[in-house]
């Protein structure tokens, strides 16, 4: 502990006092224009170096900005400069919907339980859909049945039925949209040998509006 040497490994000596560090460096900043030997090259080098870096990196960034100019929202879908949304991204708004395919899916989810995969129903319990005038005939009647449901005794292709078909409009539990109703109806009108016309979304909307007052299910008498 009593070693007075300046070079003791266990207690390094300071080379400068804190106050001197402040004063000397403060003066260095204040006198920066003072010309010195070989000193003037440094600002020139720094200026050239910094501007070159900014130039090169700016080129890199602009080249790789990948959709930043398309807006922040679209940019979240663009992960690389080679991806060009105008060229490579199909337009969301004109995605063609195949009514038959969607209708088939809806049919498979719901209707198939009663009317069966082959559209023949179960004789005496659930009426068929293939080769039936109710299906391939009047469009409005068919839309009406789907929106409001149907119950009570009726005869289809010479067989007597007394069942209940639920409403798919707002009064039932399904509450399908105009699109869904039109797709599934188009599907059943063109499947199993049926060759009737397509039912448009607009037609469904018209029928829905025209019969909005009805609160009860249809019966055979209404058809």
């Amino acid at each position: 502990m009593s070693d007075n040497s300046n070079n003791d490994f266990r207690r390094e000596a300071s080379g400068a006092s804190d106050h001197d560090i402040q004063v000397v460096h403060g003066r260095m900043l204040a006198n920066q224009e003072e010309p010195k030997e070989g000193y003037s090259l440094m600002p020139l080098f720094m200026l050239g170096f910094v501007s070159t870096m900014i130039f090169l990196v700016a080129i890199y960034f602009i080249h790789n900005r990948a959709g930043l100019s398309e807006g922040l929202g679209l940019a979240t879908q663009i992960q690389d400069k080679r991806f060009n949304p105008d060229k490579h991204m199909p337009d969301d708004t004109v995605v063609a919907i195949d009514p038959i395919a969607v209708g088939q899916r809806l049919y498979a989810q719901v209707c198939v339980a009663c009317h069966q995969v082959n559209g023949m129903g179960i004789p005496g319990a659930f009426p068929p859909l293939a080769a039936v005038d109710y299906v391939t005939g009047d469009e409005d009647r068919l839309i009406n049945i789907l929106i409001h449901g149907l119950q009570g005794p009726m005869e289809v292709n010479g067989v007597q039925y007394n069942g209940l078909m639920p409403a798919f409009g707002p009064s039932g539990t399904y509450n399908w949209s105009d699109e869904q109703i039109s797709y599934v109806l188009t599907y059943i009108r063109q499947e199993w040998g049926n060759e009737a016309s397509e039912i448009t979304v607009e037609r469904v909307a018209e029928v829905r509006a025209a019969t909005a007052d009805r609160t009860t299910m249809l019966t055979a008498a209404d058809l």
């Binding site: 990196v57 890199y60 960034f61 790789n64 900005r65 990948a66 959709g67 930043l68 940019a75 979240t76 663009i78 992960q79 690389d80 400069k81 991806f83």
Partner: peptide, 11 residues
């Protein structure tokens, strides 16, 4: 993540 974020990091 968006391409510009990657470019910003690398730049």
């Amino acid at each position: 993540v968006p391409g510009w974020v990657q470019a910003l990091g690398v730049s």
